[in-house]
Simulated scan of single mutants.
Amino acid sequence: MKNTIVGVDLAKDVIQVCVYASKKVQSNTEMTHHEFLEWLFTSSSTTVVFEACGTSNYWKQKATEAGHAAHLISADLVSKIRQNQKTDKNDALAIVQASMLPDISFIKGKTIEQQQLQTILRLRELSVKQKTASGNQLKALLLEFNIRVSARNGGLGGVIESVLEDAENEFSAAFREALHTAWQHHLSIIKSIAIYDGCLEELVEQHEDCKRLLKLEGVGVINAVNLYIALGCADLGSFCKGKDASACIGLTPIQHTSGGKVKLGSIGRYVKNSLLRSQLITGAMAVVAQVCKRTAVTSKEVWIQQLVARRGKKIAAVALANKNVRTAFAMLTQGTEYKADPVAV
């Protein structure tokens, strides 16, 4: 079984399992989730390759628990390798073929702890979007009655409260009830965001890696969790160097090399996790803004001030975010602590 490769195409209801050994396909069968789980724990140790998709982290964890060498492979790469029409059998075979390419880079999986943190982050992100959408809708609907929301009249809450208490504005009881319900819904979304923040802070206190990442400039709870999920532990990481992780996040210039000529452009506009890059740059921008207002006390702050003087605050923020990712990668892989060097007197 050492030379056997098993390609697994995951679906909601069924799982396609392609077994490749002795230079030919031994079987390519469909299994239920229960049958596949039983197969994992009854089969001899082998290499099992999953297409990275929904539930792939769970099945990778189960395959590893059963003693197999489990890997995740890019769905985009599998689609390029697939030779015939898209079927479950062809997908499972393409997974096997893609896994045998030279210098293949597998996708790292997530631990249960990382999945929990990611779930809370996703719930928080959705609530933040809902809060913005709900607030904008209330402001726009009130504007239809020429009721304008501003900080001088108490903001959205103050305006809605005055509308509900004003008995002479000719609004019906049904309209007042609907407006009150919409406002309570908006408040419940705000409350849910606070609850998610509290859950993240509680979990960060339980993770030593996340707590150490909080010492980096411009890295708060959310950025610490994002870096922990993106970079992971040393045995799970798919990056060899910190610069590879930074390039994957989209914090390095795009390189186009041809005929021995190297051209470096701007950072990529389109990346897979643009929200992570945005949050890292936002945190770094806050640090840059504060450092420019006072005397530098660390060598990194001196570097930031010099970079701002040469290239401006925005480029300095991107450079700081890039440096934070590289430092975080070194901290997670080597188990080291971060301590800023003071300015030499």
Rank of each mutant, 00 (worst) to 15 (best):
K243L: 01
G260T: 14
A11L: 00
Q85F: 02
L307M: 10
T29A: 14
K2V: 13
G157W: 02
F145W: 01
D9M: 05
S105R: 15
K243G: 08
L203T: 11
A174S: 06
S192F: 14
G155L: 08
L332A: 01
N3G: 12
L77A: 02
K191T: 13
I73Y: 05
L77H: 01
D9E: 11
V17P: 10
V19G: 06
V287Y: 05
A230P: 11
W39M: 09
A309H: 12
V225D: 07
M331S: 00
N273G: 14
A92S: 07
V48K: 11
S278T: 10
G54L: 08
M331D: 11
A133Q: 01
K300L: 10
T55N: 12
S134I: 03
K215F: 06
G109P: 04
D235K: 02
K86G: 09
Y196A: 06
K129W: 13
K62T: 14
H33F: 10
M331N: 01
V297M: 01
V96W: 09
K2H: 07
F106H: 03
L200C: 06
S134F: 02
E170W: 04
Q279S: 14
V308P: 10
I120P: 08
G67S: 06
H256V: 15
L123Q: 04
C240M: 14
A224K: 04
Q334Y: 06
L142P: 02
A173S: 00
V287H: 05
V291S: 03
K24N: 09
K313W: 00
C292G: 02
V14Q: 15
T181C: 12
I190H: 09
N84T: 15
L143C: 00
T87L: 00
A247M: 03
Q184T: 02
R269G: 07
K24F: 09
V163I: 01
R326Y: 12
T42F: 15
T111K: 03
N322Y: 07
F329N: 05
E30N: 07
V287C: 04
K339D: 07
I281E: 15
K211V: 15
E202V: 15
I254R: 12
E113N: 08
A296P: 14
A344T: 15
V297Q: 01
A321N: 01
G312H: 09
Q334H: 13
L121D: 08
N146I: 03
A69I: 04
C292N: 06
W183P: 03
W303R: 02
S74K: 11
S274V: 11
G220A: 12
L200F: 04
Q85T: 07
K191Y: 12
T87V: 03
Q305W: 02
D88S: 11
A230I: 00
A21W: 13
D9T: 05
L236S: 15
E301M: 12
